[in-house]
Design a protein around this nucleic acid. Structure first.
Ligand SMILES: [Mn+2]
Ligand SMILES: [Mn+2]
Ligand SMILES: [Zn+2]
Ligand SMILES: [Zn+2]
Lengths: 152, 152
DNA sequence: GTTGTATTGATAACCATTATCATTAATGAG
DNA sequence: CTCATTAATGATAATGGTTATCAATACAAC
């Protein structure tokens, strides 16, 4: 009974990193939610669901760092004082989106509206900036801030 | 000999806040640079230039908080572990721009290229999102990340 | 000038994230 | 499968940017 290798397992192989219990469990937690979890939230979820005896908070931070380096996870600052993480890709491939952030309650909306137009403009902007300022650009960040209907 | 009121003095008045020495000095520091200063950098600049006997770091944080609330200063996280601040407006009015961040050395470029096109798309996006998700949107954030020629 | 109150600064506390280091376990060779 | 190598882990302490406290100070309205 061999499990098919998921998209992220290959990345570990290629980087020469070990597929450990904690790493599998943390990716599992992230793939089970649409939320943008903080390290502590992952930690608490693990304890609550008894997913693994006791993974240290330190390991969560280290693992997230690895996942970000491998491009498996994206890292965000939404201004609430803690870094938040989200899987970069689901089983159905990338889900390119940007964020709408409520500065009242911290609620976050993943939106894909206008993404195609944005992408076109961003590509053009990226090329222009790269040339003019001699940068090699790797990624971008777009966020809208406001108040949700509840916090209005 | 009456000094003309600057754009930000009115905001203090309207908000019923006092125009104190420390506040004036901190705004002065920010208006004297194109850099995106952290609280500690402002603190050190003050001591170095002897702008005022001894303004406490606490006061810097509190003042920056006030300035952000009044819209006199913008607050940014460029991923280097400290919050950075920038005057929202110069003597010649707003200078709308976005940021290009070097993840190697932290160097930041203010760019205005493509701003008009971005603005058009952003306005449209903003309206669309506001309606669809029932948000009142106040501001947005656009940043490009990469490596400058030095860090390549 | 007097007065009421917002503001300040020294200090301690907070809290998310990192560094340390001895212990454990994933992996590849045999 | 067994073993040896060494990356990874977890308990703990430390770090560092930011906040809370509170008595002392200084705006600004009269
Ligand atoms: Mn998201
Ligand atoms: Mn800027
Ligand atoms: Zn809200
Ligand atoms: Zn650089």
């Amino acid at each position: 009974m061999h499990m098919q290798k998921s998209w992220w397992q290959k990345k570990f192989k290629k980087a020469g990193l070990r597929l450990t219990g904690p790493r599998l469990v943390i990716i599992d937690i992230l793939s089970q939610t649409n939320n943008h979890l903080s390290a502590e939230e992952i930690y608490l979820t693990l304890r609550r669901e008894n997913k693994s005896n006791n993974i240290g908070l330190t390991t969560i931070y280290r693992t997230l760092d690895v996942l970000v380096r491998l491009g498996i996870v994206y890292k965000f600052d939404f201004g609430d004082g803690r870094t938040r993480y989200e899987l970069s890709e689901g089983p159905n491939g990338f889900h390119h989106h940007h964020h709408l952030v409520c500065t009242g309650c911290g609620h976050i909306v993943d939106y894909t509206d206008f993404i195609d137009e944005e992408k076109e403009l961003l590509d053009r902007t990226e090329k222009g900036l790269a040339k003019k300022y001699n940068f090699s650009i790797h990624h971008h960040l777009i966020q809208f801030y406001g108040l949700c209907e509840h916090c209005r």
